[in-house]
């Protein structure tokens, strides 16, 4: 005997008591749990960003909104003749290139070393990651003390091992201060990037590497032709993150040098901070921050495009 079931067109066949399609419910659930984070994101990032953009077109000392005057592009024109601004841009670019390259290279090198069944690999991984959990202010204070020519241990240590020619005023010498900041910056987060690359290395199919070895590939060839190419997207992400970190550097420099000596370590964030909070030029300081935002955004766009190209090549 045949049983016929009447089904009206357009209505999906459902068992009695069945729920709505899972995707729609998941979307609503996601929104609910995202609400607190969205609140913070909009309240503490988007709104201040819009405020900063607005203030960049004003002349304002920052004491009361009654004194705020719209001045159009005057603040951006002022940058053209501001030598310290251009020095800050140069320093930012030096930091981005030097720190990002060093962080990526060191992180990659250590990730590869630890990937090769080194004893106590997990211990070393933890040790290398530890600087990233130390606050930037603490990092700056400790390094400032350590590098002090009168109170620190770095110079006496260099003397003791016969490298007296390297001793000096690490943070007070205009020629040394910025490279020293680069070293501290790299020290702080290379471990984090190394961890990202180690995780990516673990995702490379073992059989690919195995079959390369069976075919007679040396370790160098294995890494050059299989591992590194497959890691390119991850390396790209690491380089992007390292670059963005270095672009928005502030606390390290503020604690260690305040942008000195004689603006030798001045970057856009510290110069913008000085203008807004010390020089009573909130409008100009905001304009500097907008420039920093645009440069960081441009870097992100470039890197994301490069990353997509790398992923397409792999595919």
């Amino acid at each position: 005997m045949t049983t016929h079931i009447d089904v009206q067109p357009g209505i999906a066949l459902q068992r009695p008591g069945a729920r709505r399609p899972p995707q729609r419910r998941d979307g609503r659930l996601a929104l609910v749990f995202l609400a607190p984070a969205l609140f913070f994101y909009i309240g503490f990032l988007i709104i201040p960003l819009i405020g900063t953009l607005f203030l960049s077109f004003t002349d304002w000392e920052g004491f009361t909104f009654d004194q705020l005057r719209m001045t159009g592009l005057d603040n951006y024109r002022q940058m053209a003749g501001d030598d310290v601004f251009w020095a800050a841009v140069r320093h930012n670019l030096i930091l981005v290139v030097a720190a990002a390259v060093l962080k990526t290279v060191i992180a990659l090198a250590l990730a590869i070393i630890l990937d090769n069944n080194v004893r106590f690999a997990r211990f070393f991984q933890t040790v290398y990651l530890m600087p990233a959990v130390v606050s930037l202010v603490v990092t700056g204070v400790v390094f400032s003390l350590a590098l002090s020519p009168t109170l620190g241990f770095v110079n006496p240590l260099l003397d003791a091992i016969g490298l007296s020619s390297l001793t000096g005023d690490w943070l007070g010498d205009t020629g040394r201060a910025l490279p020293t900041i680069v070293v501290v910056e790299v020290w702080h987060t290379f471990g984090l990037h190394m961890t990202i690359l180690i995780a990516s290395l673990a995702g490379i199919p073992g059989e690919l590497r195995e079959s390369a070895r069976v075919d007679g590939a040396t370790t160098w060839q294995e890494y050059r032709h299989i591992v590194i190419p497959m890691l390119r997207p991850a390396i790209g992400v690491v380089f992007l993150l390292a670059g963005i970190e270095s672009f928005k550097i502030f606390a390290t420099i503020y604690v260690m040098t305040r942008g000195g000596p004689s603006h030798a370590t001045e970057v856009l964030s510290t110069w913008g901070f000085f203008q807004a909070f010390s020089a009573n030029n909130v409008g100009y300081g905001s304009a500097i921050m907008v420039v920093l935002l645009l440069l960081t955004f441009a870097l992100s766009v470039l890197q994301v495009r490069s990353n997509r190209r790398a992923q397409n090549d792999l595919a």
Partner: peptide
């Protein structure tokens, strides 16, 4: 003056 004038702050000065 002591070494490291440009990198020493007030607290380091008084400590010296």
């Amino acid at each position: 003056f002591n070494e490291g004038v440009a990198s020493s702050d007030y607290d380091a000065m008084t400590a010296l």
